[in-house]
């Protein structure tokens, strides 16, 4: 989609009390501070089922999370409806949110995952590591330009991380006999 008028929802999630796991909320705070027209921002500790309803009201959804092993400083992947079979907890995966939005609310929201590379996760502390802070700056620049330009698909081509593409089972493979 390339449209300056697309309604965009950015959800930054993670635990700011767990070091670099706070990258998602930190990005959300930065983008919210920019007050970009047409862009709404949510922040949460983790994704849960109600985010499916949230994204269903938007053309574009961007899920921003810390990543432990992806490309630096970040990657930007197109997100397909999916289910993480047998996994998960109170939280759901971004692909499950998209799947629920589609199944329950008929949403056709074009969704992307922005994985910002973090390095320190084990421990408590409300701070980002130096490297993670640097990656956050790059991600903020990227997102602010992205939502202004509206070139989501091109960006997903350019910044994709193929290693992150196939971790989930496609929802179409689920049978309900």
């Amino acid at each position: 989609m390339k449209s300056g008028k697309a309604r965009v929802l950015l959800i930054g999630y993670g635990n700011p009390g767990r070091l670099d796991d706070g990258l998602g909320p930190a990005l959300a705070a930065c983008i919210e501070g920019l007050s970009i027209p047409g862009v709404s921002v949510e922040s949460d500790y983790q994704l849960t089922v109600e985010h499916a309803h949230d994204i269903s009201n938007y053309d574009i959804a961007i899920f921003a999370d810390a990543d432990t092993s992806g490309r630096e400083p970040f990657y930007f992947n197109r997100l397909a409806p999916s289910v993480t079979s047998g996994l998960g907890s109170h939280e759901v995966s971004p692909g499950e949110v998209v799947s629920l939005a589609l199944t329950l609310f008929g949403a056709k929201t074009q969704s992307y995952i922005l994985g910002i590379r973090g390095y320190e996760f084990n421990g408590f502390g409300e701070r980002l590591s130096c490297l993670a802070s640097r990656n956050l700056e790059s991600a903020v620049d990227f997102v602010s330009n992205l939502v202004k330009e509206g070139n989501f698909e091109e960006a997903a081509e350019e910044f994709t991380d193929t290693g992150k593409a196939c971790v989930e089972i496609c929802v179409d493979n689920i049978s309900l006999n």
Binding site: V49, E50, H53, V83, S85, G88, L100, T103, N173
Partner: peptide, 28 residues
């Protein structure tokens, strides 16, 4: 387990799944 999950419920029992989503949202 391929069906015994939240997406399985959403597909087979969508009314219940929507109730769950909206009740959670209300509490929030």
């Amino acid at each position: 387990p391929a069906i015994r999950n939240v997406i399985g419920v959403a597909k087979k029992f969508p009314e219940l799944a929507v109730q769950g989503v909206m009740m959670r949202k209300y509490g929030q």
